[in-house]
Design a protein around this nucleic acid. Structure first.
Lengths: 160, 160
DNA sequence: TAATTACCTACTAAGTTACTAGGTATTATA
DNA sequence: TATAATACCTAGTAACTTAGTAGGTAATTA
């Protein structure tokens, strides 16, 4: 798991899609205006999201992008893995220069940590965000199957 | 929270320190050999870790680096924040060009997510790694105050 | 037919990563 | 006391990533 501004752009753009899902496709031009990201950079990101089947493009006037599957089937991990190519995890491929001592052990420990992080981010879906009460007030009511995780997301000041 | 190879280098290096804590200071030269990272790059990373008081340097022959505080007081989040300067979270500072609609809302949602991620990584300490049974076999036994989290870290194949 | 959108390729400026090279300061030990 | 081993510091740089510009083509609606 890698996490950078690129991943953040993708996640917030996907949130935009999820929130506005009922009102038809969202154009990249809109997201560009909302998020202050260049249109062409968004096109690059959405090209990857489309290949990962997380979004569908709709061409022509009135077109734009829609979620590729239900919001509760799209996890934050899905989005980040689609746009942020993963970190080259091991420099010691297999066995050659990787002696049996500390080096391989810390690599193993890192892999465990990385996997737990993946599991954490895979347990949070876009649905967990659009189900938040303050968003419900703005968007049309969902048929909320209120996830356990959504309770975790209280408004909090700190960030980044 | 930003997460890149730089952060991974810092975390695995700190694991090296935690694991070898009983045998005196660990030299950057050793870590450089174990991890395949250049000595000078490690120096840059450890300069930041030292400023964050996560490590102490010991000069002269037999010197090296030691943990700056007990392993159970150093979280993964501490390490990553020390070396990876955080992502510029909001492009809409305050109010000026940030209209009340979707833009600020997704920023808020991202901040919540980011904070939850921070909490997750702050809940995992170096002690949770050196308390793992397969490491205990190699290093000297700790006076294990077996954390609840350590149970989470089972060996797992997947990574990055 | 015209406008609107996705979708594609090539190029580029700015920033980050990871490294090389060259030092100085401190300290254990021979 | 001299030497070696280490931390600690600065400057420069090649490779890579990020985020953008520019200029298209393809599909679709009105």
């Amino acid at each position: 798991m890698k996490l950078s501004t690129k991943g953040r752009y993708a996640v917030t753009a996907m949130m935009d899609l999820a929130i506005n899902d009922r009102e038809g496709p969202v154009t990249l031009s809109d997201i560009s205006g909302w998020q202050g990201i260049s249109l062409s950079y968004l096109e690059q990101l959405f090209s990857k999201l489309r290949k990962a089947k997380l979004v569908e493009g709709v061409r022509g006037p009135g077109g734009g992008y829609r979620l590729g599957k239900p919001a509760d089937k799209i996890s934050i991990a899905n989005i980040i893995l689609a746009v942020d190519e993963s970190i080259d995890s091991t420099q010691c491929k297999g066995a050659e220069d990787c002696h049996a001592g500390d080096r391989c052990m810390t690599h193993k420990l890192w892999e465990d940590l990385s996997f737990r992080l993946y599991e954490f981010l895979d347990g949070i879906t876009l649905a967990d965000f659009i189900e938040r009460p303050e968003i419900k007030r703005i968007t049309i009511q969902q048929n909320s199957t209120s996830s356990q995780i959504s309770r975790m997301f209280q408004p909090v000041a700190l960030a980044s």
